[in-house]
Nucleic acid binder design. Structure first.
Lengths: 202, 202, 202, 202
DNA sequence: CATGAATGAGTTTTCATTCAT
DNA sequence: TATGAATGAAAACTCATTCAT
């Protein structure tokens, strides 16, 4: 909390605090990326967030609930930043490239959130429901892909396959870059986008 | 151990029981896939494996060590089954398709092992070293890809990029199939292989 | 509070709401019978009573205070319903039988209150003071028993012994009936009353 | 552990220890009588018993299991001490008096165990099964009562009623004596036994 | 009077691991 | 080699209570 925020807060210190929820989320993301889901306890999260661990239970039902809400909140943030300004007038290829670049840019500049998503996606704590809800945020992309199939620009295959090919290699690329196994090159990125396009193209 | 099994063991200097190690591995894989890494304790593994939990510490230094050894053992098994019979006389495309199909076949018929790999790959318990060692098993594939680049059949891009594009979509496809989000179709598989080829092709 | 309820309250100096106190008591009784004293928390009581848990602390000092007040309130209610109309003109045996039947009837028709009493009577949270105060409500009965001793109808033994023999078997009978271990029969009841009388009779 | 016991134990310190189970039971009984079931935590029991609280879970599944096993163990001990030497040659009244006196003597000299039983009997943690099993220990008494009915010495009423009248007043007497509300007199005891007999007698 | 938010201290239980045998 | 018993440390979560509004 900055000094200014603090002063705004004086009159309402006993009201449920967006900040608190936020700092719990941030603490969780950081710890999980640093030490893994299994090693991240509620009390460690609380300590890092600067609240009592019982306070977490004011905001969330239990650990599972907290993680699922965090998952959805990140998915939503991502969707808002990445897909909201989809421009209908662009050519299909431009739209495709635009969306993919924005997505890659998002995960590159929100590494922590992205890595949390990746780790949590493999956990049995992720509810089927959250998974589904999370996918919904990609709706504009599904529309794009369907349009591409209709225009015979993309292959006539299951849209899930197109969707998968569009994002999974990019995600993996960012993951191994973050993991230090390769170094990031703009050139690689362009190649990756080209390869993705080639995979989808009819 | 039956008498017969025992007699087979006679010539062996080591007393440690390959079977026991094996059943610990199997128990671990099953439990981790069922309940997640975080929820799988040594004592549960021991119970499922039919040994005392102290016995696990005869075979492995600690939990981390056990999981890393399990990781490498699966990677090795996979490598043996999938890449050992790489046939040099095949055309590049045939070799590519052959390898990819064998890989997909392996993970489809060894779902538990595959899912364990996926879950453990995202865990900080996975040692850098194991990760690297795990990659080594793909060496024949790296050779294939290099050859393809030299012959100008594949794009002139970082071989890691080629490797990534070759396997990651297939893995993701199997994962969402196992997760019940799509149904398996031979047709999809053929399309996937074609898309993969298109992505790599120069 | 509706407007009408509010207007009924006009003449009262106290703002504390008899209803609210009542619903806290009811919630407590129900929960304690259902799950036991140990498992009944203030917040669960509050939730069931439809108030905030901090509201309970407006009415009571703390949990102990609340339980003791509840205890006394039930004892009082019982005393009012059971012993207030003690009829001096009745013969001793009629008075005895009348009182005992009324008591049994009360605990049969107020099972929850009765069971709470039983459970709380064994708790160290029950203050000595409350216990003593609770006994006072039985004063008419002590008078009856003393009179019986003077008239040589009852045994010349410690009045506490008479009192105990008068009520304890009846209470136990109702308890095991409520617990489902026996079924209720009017016949049993008559026998029980006879046995009680025989125990007391000189 | 005495010095002698200790020396006997030297060679077997890693074998499940009857003593340990015993000291957990004793700690539990004492604490529950002192502070109530609700206030007695596993860690307090462990501390008092001189073991780690995790050790309790080596011997019992959970708190409920521990308490139920303790309940049955006391019931069994009581049954062994009180009813095992039932003498068939005695007259009914002698047998009745003998059993009742032995019972009263047992609860007077095992106050802690008795009070635990009383407190736990009212708890929802007491399993129906344990309750039933606990009653079984009274079998010799049920036989006695049945015989008395056949011989027309006792009233022709439900045996449960006879059983109840035989023990409940005695138990209550001991309870209020322990609670300090009355003082113990041999004379009272004799009166109590006479009253009990009068209640049962045909 | 009434309450939502907050929390320190506590709960039960499980964990990975050790150790004597 | 194999193990049953034991445990300190930590897990997730709940509790009675307070406090600012």
């Amino acid at each position: 909390m900055t000094l200014i925020e603090r002063s705004f807060n004086i009159g309402s210190m006993r009201h449920k605090d967006e900040n608190k929820s936020e700092s719990i989320f941030n603490a969780a993301i950081q710890l999980i990326n640093e030490h893994g889901l299994a090693e991240t306890s509620m009390s460690k999260i609380a300590k890092k967030a600067g609240v009592s661990s019982s306070t977490i239970y004011v905001y969330f039902e239990n650990k599972e609930d907290m993680l699922n809400k965090l998952y959805l909140s990140i998915k939503k943030k991502m969707s808002l930043e990445v897909f909201y300004d989809y421009d209908d007038s662009l050519s299909l290829q431009s739209a495709f490239e635009h969306a993919l670049r924005k997505y890659i840019n998002f995960i590159l500049t929100n590494k922590d959130e992205f890595l949390f998503l990746e780790q949590f996606s493999n956990s049995p704590l992720l509810h089927k429901l959250s998974l589904k809800e999370g996918l919904d945020f990609f709706e504009p992309i599904f529309n794009l892909l369907e349009k591409g199939k209709i225009q015979n620009v993309f292959k006539q295959v299951d849209t899930n396959l197109l969707h998968m090919f569009m994002f999974i290699p990019a995600m993996q690329y960012v993951k191994i870059y973050i993991g230090g196994q390769i170094e990031f090159k703009q050139e690689n990125l362009n190649e990756l986008i080209q390869m993705t396009w080639d995979a989808l193209k009819a």
